[in-house]
């Protein structure tokens, strides 16, 4: 058998092309980032422009300026671009009808992933940084989002009121305080600038409250969210401290969540003293005291 002969061969020639009156003007306009189509004899706008329409009829010579945006009428996704392709990463070849044009052009869309491509999607020209007067002055098209980002970024101070401050300072010392309503005598935690029953501030003299109470009702949180302190599932509930008439809200833990129940007696589990600040977060969570549950009627008025 004779050896099969093979040698590399490159067909290469840098052509010089005459562009003629229509394509020449079009490509020259690209240097100025201007897109022009041409009006056909039947009134349609052809883009990119040609001297004749697809029926061979001469176009009118009337150039029509178009916006650099258009709509994808068809596309294909290229996972492995070839060296000749306009982009070196996965992209879409697309037929794109510029706004105001009646014919579509072929070009590339840099959409990142195939899922971002859709017939009917809106795209915009990405211009080459350095103009060459060729169709490559359009690098590719980018998807247009109907959404713009307008961040609002304002810096404020938060300054708790007098009653709230008193409460937070007490928490920083490991204490709960409440304030008595001047009309009904009921105890509010925290003390308040006004109680709904009186319209008056709670009494000036605050009341020290224990860190024990009754879990009146609760939810098992199973949904994750940003800044969450515990890993779901965990319990968040309303706790009426002994001697108070309104609940505070906190986490409940220390036993499996399935065993947590309405009426359970709980006590605050404080963080180490050195971590305390002016915040309810000094308490990690409330945990069962082990005492018998409170009967329903004893806390029903708090629900």
């Amino acid at each position: 058998m004779t050896e099969r002969l093979s040698a590399p061969y490159r067909l290469h020639y840098a052509y010089t092309r005459s562009t003629g009156p229509v394509i020449g003007r079009f490509l020259d306009s690209l240097r100025d980032r201007v897109l022009e189509g041409i009006r056909a004899a039947d009134g349609r706008v052809l883009f990119p422009p040609t001297e004749y329409d697809e029926q061979g009829r001469a176009t009118t010579g009337e150039f029509v300026q178009l916006r650099p945006t258009g709509t994808v009428t068809s596309y294909t996704w290229v996972n492995e671009p070839r060296p000749t392709h306009p982009l070196d990463r996965p992209f879409a070849w697309a037929l794109i009808k510029l706004d105001g044009a009646d014919t579509a052009m072929v070009h590339a869309v840099d959409a990142g992933k195939e899922k971002a491509m859709k017939v009917g999607m809106r795209v915009r020209v990405r211009w080459a940084e350095k103009a060459t007067g060729t169709i490559r002055d359009i690098v590719c098209f980018d998807p247009i989002s109907p959404i713009i980002k307008t961040p609002v970024d304002l810096n404020y101070f938060v300054r708790p009121g007098e009653h709230q401050s008193q409460y937070l300072h007490a928490l920083a010392e490991g204490r709960f305080i409440g304030g008595r309503c001047r009309v009904t005598g009921r105890v509010y935690v925290p003390p308040r600038g006004a109680t709904p029953e009186s319209g008056l501030p709670t009494e000036d003299e605050v009341i020290d409250l224990p860190d024990t109470g009754v879990l009146t009702t609760f939810t098992v949180v199973r949904i994750p969210f940003e800044g969450q302190k515990l890993t779901p599932p965990y319990v968040f509930g309303a706790i009426v401290l002994d001697g108070a008439d309104v609940p505070i809200y906190h986490l409940v833990s220390g036993i499996p969540y399935e065993q947590i129940r309405m009426g359970m007696r709980v006590r605050a589990k404080w963080k180490p003293r050195e971590e305390w600040g002016t915040t309810l977060e000094n308490i990690e969570y409330f945990e069962p005291t082990g005492e018998p549950d409170a009967p329903f009627d004893s806390y029903a008025m708090h629900l």
Binding site: V158, P160, Q164, L168, T216, T217, F218, T219, V221, I223, F225, G227, Q228, K229, F236, G237, A238, Y249, H250, L251, M262, T278, T279, L280, E281, F296, A300, L303
Partner: peptide, 27 residues
């Protein structure tokens, strides 16, 4: 939004209303 002095222990309206629903069922 995350606000100083107010620990974020629960998220969304559901966290607020779920205990009330539990209380309704129980009552």
């Amino acid at each position: 939004p995350a606000i100083p002095f107010q620990p974020q222990l629960v998220a969304g309206a559901g966290g607020y209303f779920a205990p009330l629903i539990r209380a309704y069922i129980r009552r």
